[in-house]
Design a protein around this nucleic acid. Sequence first.
DNA 1: ACAAAAGTGTTAATCTTACACCCATGT
DNA 2: ACATGGGTGTAAGATTAACACTTTTGT
Lengths: 227, 227
Amino acid sequence: MENQQIKVAVDAVVFGYHQQQLHVLLIKQKFGPFKNTWSIVGGFVHNNEGLIVAIKREIKEETNLDIQYLEQLYTFGDNPKRDPRAQVIAVAYFALVNSLNLNPTADTDALEAQWFPINQLPNLAYDHQEIVALAKKRLQAKIVYQPVGFELLPEKFEFSQLEQLYCCILERDIDRRNFRKKMLRLEIVSETNEISKKNAGRPGKLFSFNRIKYSELVELGQPLDLF
Amino acid sequence: MENQQIKVAVDAVVFGYHQQQLHVLLIKQKFGPFKNTWSIVGGFVHNNEGLIVAIKREIKEETNLDIQYLEQLYTFGDNPKRDPRAQVIAVAYFALVNSLNLNPTADTDALEAQWFPINQLPNLAYDHQEIVALAKKRLQAKIVYQPVGFELLPEKFEFSQLEQLYCCILERDIDRRNFRKKMLRLEIVSETNEISKKNAGRPGKLFSFNRIKYSELVELGQPLDLF
DNA sequence: ACAAAAGTGTTAATCTTACACCCATGT
DNA sequence: ACATGGGTGTAAGATTAACACTTTTGT
């Protein structure tokens, strides 16, 4: 084998949901060719480090957020010059966090970290715009057959929040009655005995995601059509 | 950045269909820690080479087959010791070829290349068994919403062949009438004016995949439920 | 009493599934 | 004439989509 010069990086598109909007977490580069440009979180894989371990480490280092859901998205490496400094292939992940009560704190590397609404992103470093676009597409596709939406919400939530979240991700209206029926029929959301009183109007019951029931459905190989 | 020692490989699970069975193309390793063990096709990425280019080169070099369909599958690199010699991450692809008239010819590297029925695979090198299993799962999932099955058939085919192929990939029975109705309703298969006469019994019309119609459907964002 | 959001059923249309007999050809 | 596989329609059941009024609370 010739002496391969290729570097391996991991990057993650971290999604959060708050203020009725889907957000992406970005950090501002402090060094390198894209100094002062916003980018998604990520970095190089260490020697003898697995990819998942690497991306978790990077997210932890750069943002201090607790990841709820993480899956591999795509590996970017068709253009050997996507990084101007050297040939770098990036294994991209997509992550969901419950961002409601969490502010990402820029960490040891003193990077700025900030949530941006998905439809109001600044210019991004490298090919990160493409990565974010793909992640958004994947989230939209995924949410209709796997209940990943819950990972973006707090443990207990109102039905209207869940509905809002779906609208917002799918970028279209949803029929409230049909939505509720579907979710309740599958029994993957359970009523709690708590009641929300934050909003105006009639208070709503709080619900929670029934992970046990969901696992059962998955075991049975039931394809769940949420839409 | 510390001096990263990680190598990047590309591997492909190449599927073919003949003798009423789904097959995977394997090659026999001539060197290295898995000498004489069967493995999927692949190899290291060259410097300044894109990933797609690399995998196409490897497939060409090792088998001489014409690839009909190629997509990225998953990147394997969570276990830094998956290759006993060094830390190697493998970007895995899955490929479909029309294998009916083609024998893979072991090529310049004098490797043996051979089709194996998907359910009768030998022991495989590295974590290739896992890669093949994932590719199979992906193919099964994919074929119900994207008509990739056609890539495994010749240009013109009998309806029964298509049906057989679906049965074989999904590993279950399919209702002939409903299947035909669905395919014809979507207009992605077109009748040709040729007639097959290979088999016993009443000769069947030959059909072809209507790529133009299919592109139109995709443009319209029509989600096509083939099942 | 009014504003605001929660909660709730029915109907029509569509899609899916199950199912069996006749047809064209070769031997 | 018989064996083999090709070709076709219908009816019942399930799912989805569309749609509007009543309830509970705070002000």
